[in-house]
């Protein structure tokens, strides 16, 4: 398959266009999975599978980047739901199995030096962290971030303002 050849199930998308957004998509998946690299890779692969098979179909109502970020977020949420159901019906043997390691511990495991700002970002509620990532780092407008997150523009603005205020408080301490 050539890079500029549209996908048969998704005629508005070419593999080349996806390749250009690959790094950003992976970074977004990392943010959503709170830095779990293996999970982010799985998420991105599942996203590509959905796009290739046409189960996630791009209609051109937004930019490809916004749409791709929305699909990635849906994949992560779907995985969370499955994981919750699995945990609900199959009780883990020990409490340790359920415990989520702290961001510092995860980053230390991966050999990553945690910047204080990253740690402060980790402490934000999920939506606030996501909207800051999209607007400050992925160059989306708040409106595009709202589309990618599947929330209204007003809600996205609220999360954006609260995230900034809370981050300032965290950094001031």
């Amino acid at each position: 398959m050539r890079d500029d050849e549209p996908l048969s199930a998704n005629p508005r998308i070419t593999p080349g266009a996806l390749a250009k957004l690959h790094a950003d998509g992976f970074g977004w998946a990392l943010t959503l999975t709170r830095g779990r690299r293996n999970e982010a890779e799985d998420v991105l692969q599942t996203t590509y599978l959905l796009i290739y098979e046409g189960r996630a179909r791009f209609a051109g109502r937004s930019t490809l980047k916004t749409w791709l970020f929305g699909v990635i977020r849906n994949v992560v949420r779907s995985r969370w739901r499955s994981e919750l159901m699995r945990r609900y019906f199959e009780l883990p043997a020990t409490e340790e199995a359920l415990a989520v390691p702290s961001a510092d511990a995860r980053h230390a495991e991966d050999g990553i030096v945690t910047a204080p700002l990253l740690a402060a970002l980790e402490r934000l509620p999920a939506r606030q962290r996501e909207v800051l990532d999209l607007v400050f780092h992925r160059d989306l407008t708040i409106e595009e971030a709202a589309q990618a997150m599947g929330i209204s523009l007003g809600t996205a603005r609220t999360h954006y303002e609260r995230a900034k205020a809370r981050l300032r408080e965290e950094l001031a301490q």
């Binding site: 996806l18 690959h22 970074g27 990392l30 890779e41 910047a115 990253l118 970002l121 780092h137």
Partner: peptide, 27 residues
């Protein structure tokens, strides 16, 4: 914005994505 952007860019540099071809072929 500059500080958040730098921190996330640093994280992205420390965790580079797998090659697109690898993820795409796996899909």
């Amino acid at each position: 914005q500059r500080r958040v952007d730098e921190a996330l860019a640093q994280r992205d540099r420390q965790q580079p994505p797998p090659a697109f071809a690898v993820s795409w072929q796996a899909a």
